[in-house]
Amino acid sequence: MQGRKDYTEKLFTSFQLSSRVPKENLYRRLRETLDLSFLYKDTKELYGKTGNPSIDPVVFFKLLLTGYLENITSDRKLVEHCSMRMDVLYFLGFDIDEELPWHSTISRTRQLYPSSLFETLFNKVFTLCVNGGMVSGHTQAVDSAPIKANASMESVVLKVPATSIDNHLKKVEDENQEGKNKNDPPNLVQITAPEHQLRRVKKHHQKLLDNPVGAPGASHEKAQLLSNKTHYNPHDPDARISVKPGKARKLNYHCSMAVDTAEGVISHIQADFADGRDSQYLPTVAMQVQNRLKKNELALTDLLADAGYSNGFNYKFLEQRNVQGWIGYSVLLDQAIP
Rank of each mutant, 00 (worst) to 15 (best):
A239M: 08
A239E: 09
R240S: 06
R240W: 02
I241F: 04
I241R: 05
I241M: 09
S242E: 09
K244W: 11
P245Q: 15
G246K: 14
G246Q: 12
K247W: 15
K247I: 13
K247V: 14
K247R: 14
A248V: 11
A248C: 12
A248F: 10
R249Q: 14
R249G: 12
R249T: 13
R249K: 15
L251V: 11
L251E: 09
N252H: 12
N252F: 09
N252T: 13
Y253I: 06
H254N: 15
C255V: 09
C255H: 14
S256E: 13
S256R: 04
S256C: 12
M257G: 09
M257Q: 13
M257W: 03
M257N: 10
M257C: 10
M257I: 12
M257T: 12
A258T: 06
A258N: 08
V259C: 05
D260A: 06
T261P: 06
T261V: 12
T261Y: 01
T261K: 05
E263K: 12
E263G: 03
G264T: 05
V265G: 10
V265K: 10
V265Q: 09
V265H: 08
V265S: 08
I266S: 03
I266V: 15
I266D: 01
S267G: 14
H268K: 09
H268R: 10
H268D: 08
I269E: 04
I269Q: 06
A271S: 11
D272G: 08
D272E: 14
D272F: 15
F273K: 07
F273S: 11
A274D: 02
D275E: 09
D275C: 07
G276K: 15
G276I: 15
R277V: 15
D278Y: 04
D278L: 07
D278E: 14
S279H: 07
S279Y: 05
Q280W: 03
Q280P: 03
Y281I: 00
L282M: 06
L282P: 00
L282C: 01
L282H: 00
P283M: 05
T284H: 13
T284M: 10
V285L: 02
V285E: 00
V285M: 03
V285R: 02
A286R: 00
A286W: 00
M287N: 12
Q288E: 08
Q288V: 02
Q288L: 03
V289W: 00
V289G: 00
N291Y: 01
N291G: 01
N291F: 00
R292H: 04
R292C: 00
L293H: 09
L293I: 03
K294D: 02
K294R: 09
K294P: 02
K294T: 04
K295Y: 01
N296C: 07
E297Q: 11
L298K: 10
L298I: 02
L298P: 03
A299I: 13
A299S: 13
A299V: 12
L300W: 00
T301Y: 04
T301Q: 10
T301N: 10
T301P: 01
D302G: 02
D302Q: 04
D302R: 04
L303I: 04
L303A: 07
L304S: 03
L304P: 02
A305L: 02
D306W: 01
A307G: 10
G308Q: 07
G308D: 04
G308Y: 00
Y309F: 13
Y309S: 02
S310D: 15
S310C: 08
